[in-house]
Simulated assay, not measured.
Amino acid sequence: MADSIMYQEDCYVILEPDRPEQFLSEAELLEKLKDILQQQEELPRDLQKFNSLEEQAQHLLETSCEFNVSPSQYLQWYVTRLEKR
């Protein structure tokens, strides 16, 4: 049986071209995703079925770890757990 700690999330590390990595909480990442989605002229087909920006961002967060903003821009995110020792 898997240890339940595997499913606990502290934060996300965010990777973008030409920028240092960032650590964001889930709420902060959702806001970032909403901002990016709001600026898109055309959304991927799997996001078009959702009526609200909140639902689109939540679906993206739960089912992906990368979003292509433009041909040369992308956003990647990975869950990470930060521990102080």
Rank of each mutant, 00 (worst) to 15 (best):
L15G: 02
F67T: 02
E21V: 10
Y74M: 07
E83W: 05
D35G: 05
D46N: 11
T80K: 14
Q40V: 10
Y74A: 07
V69R: 12
M6G: 01
T63W: 06
R85D: 10
P71F: 01
W77Y: 15
S64H: 15
T63P: 00
Q48L: 14
I14T: 03
R85Y: 08
K32I: 03
P17I: 05
N68V: 14
Q38F: 04
L37F: 02
L30V: 10
L43E: 04
H59Q: 09
E26D: 02
D35H: 11
P44R: 07
Q56S: 01
Q39N: 15
F50D: 02
N68Y: 11
Y78W: 12
S52H: 08
E54Q: 13
W77N: 05
K34I: 01
F50E: 07
Q58V: 07
L61K: 06
P71H: 04
N68S: 14
K84L: 10
Q76H: 10
F23I: 08
K84Q: 08
Q40G: 00
V69Q: 12
Q38M: 12
S4I: 06
R19G: 00
Y7A: 06
D10I: 01
R45I: 13
Q38V: 04
E41K: 10
Y12D: 00
L15E: 13
Q76F: 04
K49A: 13
S4K: 08
K84P: 03
P20H: 08
Y12C: 01
K34S: 09
E66L: 11
L53W: 06
E21N: 07
T63D: 02
T63H: 12
E55N: 03
L53P: 00
L60A: 03
Q58R: 13
Q38A: 15
P17K: 11
L24C: 00
T63M: 07
S64G: 02
E62N: 12
I5L: 05
E62R: 14
Q8H: 08
E16C: 11
E28M: 09
K32S: 07
L61V: 02
P44D: 09
E62A: 09
P20V: 03
Y78N: 13
M1G: 11
E55Y: 03
P20Y: 06
H59C: 10
